[in-house]
Amino acid sequence: MAKNLIEKAIDWGRRKSPWIIHFNAGACNGCDIEVVDALTPRYDVERFGILQQGTPRHADVLVCTGAVTLQTKDRLKQIYEQMPEPKFVIAVGTCACTGGVFDGCYCVNGGIDSVIPVDVYLPGCAARPEAIIDAVNKLLASLEEQQKSEENTDE
């Protein structure tokens, strides 16, 4: 069954308006500074429709930084569960991808994907703002491909 016009319009809206929420799962603050940097007027992410939201209920993309510590593990899961479907996760920084230098530490659970599913991994210590914007764009490109393949397999 092909998608009808309303579903296509909603797919288009999803690609054009990624609202993000930023969560620090236990980073050294390096990546957080870079995320905040990416949101400044200098990089102007509003060009791509990216807006920062204060609450997980409004957000589509969870931008996570840092290795998950035992303290933040449950909070991260809660925030992920509070986001309405469809939702995506970007792991920003090497620690968020794998645990980085903190991997194996007594208080560290591992990378973000040890707790919640991750869509885009963005390595770097710290990840640059340009790379963060590129990660969101890659996520949207993969979303477009997925939407197209859904349409083709349905037919």
């Binding site: 909603i10 797919d11 288009w12 809206g13 999803r14 054009k16 308006s17 509003e46 060009r47």
Partner: peptide, 18 residues
């Protein structure tokens, strides 16, 4: 800065509806 494209509020609205 450059600001959002012309369809931005419409895209936001449609996305939130979905």
């Amino acid at each position: 800065r450059q600001g959002p494209p012309w369809f931005q509020p419409l895209a936001d609205f449609l996305k939130l509806l979905g």
